[in-house]
Simulated assay, not measured.
Amino acid sequence: MTDRLRLAFMGTPEFGLPALQALIDAGHEIVAVYAQPPRKAGRGHRVQRAPTHAFAESRGIPVWTPARLKDPAAQAAFAELGLDAAIVAAYGLILPPPVLAAPRLGCLNIHASLLPRWRGAAPIQRAILAGDTESGATIMLMDEGLDTGPVLGEARLPIAAGTDAQTLHDAIAAAGARLIGPVLADFAAGRIAPRRQPVDGVTYANKVEKSEGAIDWTRPAEAIARQVRALGPTPGVWCHAVDSREPEGGGVRIKILKAQAVPLPDGAPAIAGTVLDDGPTVACGSGALRLEMLQRPGGAPQAAEPFLRGFALPVGSRLGNG
């Protein structure tokens, strides 16, 4: 039986929900959940609570949503919780030194990579974009650096061919949830000691910018396929296309939601962006990309066949870059 610890959980998106549930199931006392403040979202711009906020309220757990933690009053309120530890999972706010030092055991972060590779904001997307074959979850004792703290435990996961960001997100979130309970128990009991991260192999996962979704057809098909898997559906990956039945209408932005790199057919024109068949398959800088799921402005995502019934892309036509 795990000793019951007094904890705060600090996380905002869905990534942290499996771990929060695992800590509750393990019998720990969750005295507070910290999440980023509710924000306007969606087409109606309605104020929405973060997933962890809604989850905690549904279970009667007090929720704190400070805009920042630099204020002395916010830091004092955190210290007054009398925590054994704080568990952090994609919280989105920097924890200043007084917050890091307040819990008896410190603040433990569930990070979505195998540190020191992909420190920073977007480790899942960067791993796929880079063509990594492995990722995982790391439990780290936080310090003042950017994901530089010593490691308490990790779970390694393969990145299979065709894995997209959502699939990898869910797998790492589940792995972190399985890992956090045993690691926390062993650390609290003194059975494991923090180990420094290696100096070699440090990479940084910068925040994904919307502009990174623009397709450049002169790039290799494999790289564009990884771009689609890493960045869809948000911020999304797109190109420009003209419906051949409405040539005067100008080009529109087409989102590519699912695609697969394939060899360039024998004898096919190698001009990047050329539609090669009714797949549709598009020539790239090397190889070709078969488009499997697309979306036009204001429309719903569609598989290629029904999409082409409403938007003509004849063989030989050209798609523009994003």
Rank of each mutant, 00 (worst) to 15 (best):
E14S: 14
M10C: 12
D3S: 10
R296M: 10
R290A: 14
G322Q: 06
A137K: 05
S244L: 07
A185C: 02
H111E: 11
V237A: 10
R59M: 06
L93S: 11
E14W: 11
G106R: 04
H28I: 00
P306E: 05
E134C: 01
V282A: 13
G273Y: 13
L257Y: 10
M142R: 11
A221S: 09
T52F: 02
A221N: 05
G273M: 13
D71K: 09
R226V: 08
G320R: 06
G120T: 13
R219W: 01
W238Y: 14
A32K: 11
A165R: 13
A193V: 14
E80R: 02
T203I: 07
S244G: 05
T12H: 01
C239D: 06
A102N: 14
E246V: 09
S211Q: 13
E292F: 08
A26P: 01
L81E: 02
A185E: 10
A101S: 14
G250F: 10
A85W: 08
G106N: 05
A230D: 11
D186P: 01
V31E: 00
E154H: 08
Q227N: 07
R253N: 10
G136H: 04
A261D: 14
A86V: 02
E292H: 12
G316S: 11
T65L: 06
G181V: 15
I256N: 09
F78E: 01
Q197F: 10
P158V: 01
A173G: 12
K255A: 15
I139L: 09
I110C: 05
S58Q: 15
I24S: 09
G149W: 04
S244V: 10
F15T: 14
L276C: 11
P13E: 13
G176P: 01
D216K: 09
S113G: 00
D3F: 04
L5E: 10
H169L: 08
A102R: 14
D147Y: 04
R39I: 12
T218I: 01
A259N: 11
G149N: 05
G236Y: 06
P301E: 09
T138G: 07
P38G: 09
I110Y: 03
G131S: 07
L184D: 00
A160Y: 06
P247S: 03
